[in-house]
């Protein structure tokens, strides 16, 4: 096996062979989950703490379930309501937690780079569950696994990522992962929601869905966060849906067998038409949720192996 990382902070620092290793293992876990096979021994004795400094239901549940399926002792900490409100700095929170010797730390934070900062201060392995608009690596990995299972490969595909790219960590992690695996990436967004300098990332940039979706294999929709309306990024939800919402007419520009993805939670009628989201022939949105658990199981399994190996090496040295 080849997965060398100590933490999973982002896709940026993963090599293609590490991604493949992780996806192969996740693929097995996905099958086993369907068969109801249990793996309670894999993370037995491992303590997993989920620290969410930002609201999350789906991702936190997915990490919790993944840990429990592998036999870890899982603890959830709702950081929004806790010490941060009392003025404790992130570093102090990290040091306090580190003193409790957690093995796996799953962290979500509203600031880009905050999870990297925290990872510098702890002994366990850190998994980034989303840091600001920076990265969300397990989402990109679960998207990759979903694509691989639907399309039979994860290379030389034409993939469109559509919507609020500027504020999306999902988009950044996906651009990096799909780029590393040699796919053709097309970004579609109103110019106000397209980050600057994107053409330097080796992607194609489009301002209309009709052009951008031309002959793509995969259509990845992003959630439009309602709070963006206040920032004056788009004129109204209805105009956004008209120009950038995925409906049957726009989807016709993609390949006939193109799949439709969405990281959830969806705004039906804003970025995606309900009938497309529910179309079992096109939409793989439910599969994404299923793959999420499998990918997180694989990620924690691999990180725990590296952690145990490192600890063993330390003991031998001592």
């Amino acid at each position: 096996m080849s997965f060398r990382a100590r933490h999973l902070l982002g896709i940026e620092h993963l090599a293609p062979d590490e991604i493949t290793t992780l996806l192969d293992l996740a693929d097995q876990y996905a099958d086993h989950n369907r068969q109801g096979r249990s793996h309670k021994d894999v993370l037995a004795g491992i303590t997993q703490i989920n620290m969410f400094f930002e609201n999350s239901t789906r991702t936190q549940a997915s990490f919790e379930l993944a840990g429990k399926r592998l036999g870890a002792d899982v603890m959830n900490m709702a950081m929004q309501a806790s010490s941060i409100k009392k003025g404790e700095t992130l570093i102090d929170t990290a040091l306090t937690l580190n003193a409790m010797h957690p093995d796996l730390l799953v962290v979500r934070h509203p600031n880009s780079g905050a999870v990297d900062l925290l990872a510098q201060k702890v002994n366990g392995a850190v998994l980034n569950a989303g840091d600001g608009p920076h990265e969300h690596p397990t989402q990109a990995l679960l998207d990759a696994l979903t694509i691989r299972r639907a399309k039979g490969r994860l290379h030389r595909l034409s993939i469109a990522i559509c919507g609020d790219i500027a504020h999306s960590r999902v988009a950044r992690s996906n651009i990096m992962l799909l780029g590393k695996m040699e796919n053709r990436i097309r970004l579609i967004a109103p110019p106000t929601l397209m980050p600057s300098g994107m053409s330097e990332f080796g992607v194609e940039v489009f301002e209309t869905m009709e052009q951008g979706l031309q002959d793509v294999d995969v259509v990845m929709m992003l959630r439009l966060q309602k709070e963006r309306m206040d920032g004056g990024f788009i004129p109204s939800e209805r105009e956004y849906f008209h120009r950038y919402g995925l409906d049957a007419a726009k989807l016709r520009h993609a390949k006939d067998d193109a799949i439709v993805m969405h990281p959830g939670p969806m705004n039906r009628g804003v970025e995606i038409d309900g009938t497309i989201a529910d179309d079992i022939n096109r939409s793989v949105i439910q599969t994404q949720v299923e793959m999420g658990v499998a990918v997180r199981m694989a990620a924690m399994d691999l990180l725990a192996r590296n952690l145990r190996a490192a600890r063993k090496a330390e003991t031998v040295m001592a």
Binding site: S112, R172, P195, S196, G197, F201
Partner: peptide, 15 residues
């Protein structure tokens, strides 16, 4: 500063 680096790091940039 806005541009490739700001976009890569997910940090708010200024032109």
């Amino acid at each position: 500063t806005s541009g490739k680096f700001a976009s890569l790091r997910g940090l708010p940039g200024v032109s």
